[in-house]
Design a protein around this nucleic acid. Structure first.
Lengths: 358, 358
DNA sequence: CGGCATTTGTCAACCGGTTGCCAAAAATTG
DNA sequence: CAATTTTTGGCAACCGGTTGACAAATGCCG
């Protein structure tokens, strides 16, 4: 658009220069130094150490750089400094929409602060995750682990090498971003109690999921407070399919309201129950977690305890970047900073008053 | 897991070594050379040029490397070679589930072939996209553009610097992966015709979208073939919200069946029409495109023309990687390779026979 | 066993920046 | 205006690999 037009004679004369690395390639600080009539190291300083060179030389160099359309070579810079302006994000499952918003939040923040986001997936496996993390270590300045499946010790081991921020889990000694489930859950349970429910089931997520444990605890506590009975059911996978499979158990449990570990389970469960002729919410109330994309596509739309996923992603990225830039001075004894974000009930149509059986 | 246990005395004695780059840091080829008693360049060859050194030395070096837990420094390697084992993927909108599957497909293939995926978003803007692409250029070996919004010339300009593969669009001279809309569309239109529809509306996507143009062409052609009347409506944004907004126009058009540029539009449209009391599919049939995550969450579940998005992502990655490795020898005159994938109708509940108004 | 073709390993230059150290230049001070 | 402090720019080493050129070592042959 606004780039200076340059003679493109080369394009017409040469037949098929295939992505050649040679040729006019890219300008280096040496080229700039030559044009500006200074030493390469001065160029380096002018470009990365603000204030280290005089305003006059600075301008000289900047002009030369602009003229030559200079761009630093990230590798050449990374080699001596070790910094790459890149951080990694590892998610448990790319197809799980829970992570979409996290990815987006992290990506946005990264771009904003001139960082690049590298993405990897662990396929819900602790060992794959560890492998991915190790692979990344070499190329990134820091790492964000979203709902990690590896154990605390592995995480801490990684955190010893490079700054790490964990999302959706608390790991001692590692900065974390966690939604505080209590507010959202108590809102949800109170709403159920007010609608005449007495027994609620919680469909749990993966056993290694820290978040699943927290949610179950929250549900138990809130039910106790509201004097409701709470039962726990297990799911095979935290997916739509897993939700369908658990429908049997839900019906057998006799609960009139169900909270599921996540929205995917809730959606699958609702589909299966409806297919079996049950009316939601007249005969059973369903409440999910996360408020993922698509949670309001269902009929009735899904009531859910929203986690501000995008906020988690951007919060984690901000935390990590601050850590990297030492904007967050940490003394030795101080515990790792933890960012807590609020959850809230999003009341839609899948929960409500129980109709007397007729 | 299977790593050799090593004394971790350092961990206990030193108080808070903060991610120090120094210290034991990482082994280099020089360390290996010392241990193995050979020259560093021999180590380099042993590790990257198979067959260049004798089996004996090879083993010697490999053992030393294993002992020292050596990992190449990607930057040191990238500096002289220019290769980074990394490629970029730029999508128009990270929150759009269309791209989820593409991202996943690309990520999977990347990991499989020992590449790293770098992700960026263009926020549906051609200039942001160009900026992101330029930013990436320096750090990646190649680029995948999913549903790019910039113009052909910009894309070709980028493709001149680094290998580029485009998804969901055809650009002359650039390798592309495009779903062939015809099969899916003709199936859809035939199904509509068979169900007694006479007038179908097509809700278009963004004006710059190549895919939207192709789909409209496909719909026109198929309608002509089936002797249906086709009208085109415009949408403000290719989102759920955009779908809601276009509901007015749809009703005003008098069409009894609607195809929308994508599933998001279809879902929004269906929500709005249902909210206004219309029954889908009895009074109006709705057909989307892509078969995104959540398309079957709606009631009735959405009929849609499926694009194999994951296949597009992995196909593009494979194509790119083959290009990078010169596995696809291209002579000068030969056109850029294009991968066409099939689309098909996924018949669900949102389309069907028109009931006589009663 | 000498002569020649092949392997195999070494040397040294290079990729493109960064940075500690030092001296020249400029600014400040008495 | 000389003495001293502060800026500013240059030199050179370094980050950790890769690679072309070349020589030493080895294998093969007659």
């Amino acid at each position: 658009m606004t780039e200076p037009k340059m003679p493109d004679a080369a394009a017409t004369t040469e037949p098929a220069k295939k992505h050649s690395r040679s040729g006019k390639s890219h300008a280096t600080i040496y080229d700039i130094a030559k044009v500006a009539g200074v030493n390469p190291s001065t160029v380096s300083r002018a470009l990365s150490k603000p204030g280290r060179v005089s305003a006059k030389t600075q301008k000289l160099i900047e002009d030369a750089a602009a003229e030559l359309n200079y761009q630093v070579n990230p590798f050449a810079r990374a080699l001596p400094t070790g910094r790459t302006n890149t951080f990694g994000l590892i998610v448990a499952d790319i197809t799980n929409p829970t992570f979409f918003d996290i990815i987006r939040g992290a990506e946005t923040t990264a771009t904003l602060r001139d960082y690049t986001l590298v993405l990897a997936e662990s396929a819900e496996s602790g060992v794959t995750e560890l492998t991915a993390a190790r692979r990344m270590m070499a190329t990134v300045d820091g790492l964000i682990l979203a709902s990690p499946r590896m154990d605390d010790d592995d995480i801490r081991a990684i955190a010893r090498d490079k700054p790490v921020v964990v999302i959706n889990r608390e790991v001692d000694g590692v900065p974390c971003v966690v939604p505080d489930v209590n507010k959202g859950i108590s809102e949800a349970v109170r709403s159920l109690a007010a609608n005449g429910h007495h027994k609620v089931a919680f469909v749990a997520g993966p056993p290694q999921s820290w978040m699943s444990a927290r949610r179950w605890e929250g549900v138990q506590a809130a039910c106790e407070w509201s004097r409701l009975e709470a039962v726990r059911l297990e799911s095979a996978k935290p997916t739509v399919d897993g939700g369908r499979q658990v429908a049997r158990d839900v019906r057998a449990s006799g609960a009139t309201a169900v909270l599921t570990y996540n929205d995917l389970l809730a959606i699958g469960l609702m589909q299966e129950l409806q297919a079996a002729g049950m009316v939601v919410p007249d005969q059973i109330s369903i409440v999910g977690f996360d408020d993922i994309f698509g949670a309001d596509f269902t009929t009735p739309p899904l009531t859910t305890v929203r986690s501000p996923l995008g906020e988690c992603g951007s919060g984690a990225a901000t935390l990590l970047l601050d850590l990297l830039h030492d904007d967050l001075p940490r003394s030795a004894g101080e515990p790792a900073p933890t960012l807590r974000v609020e959850t809230e009930l999003v009341l839609r149509g899948s929960s409500g008053r129980l109709l007397p059986a007729g």
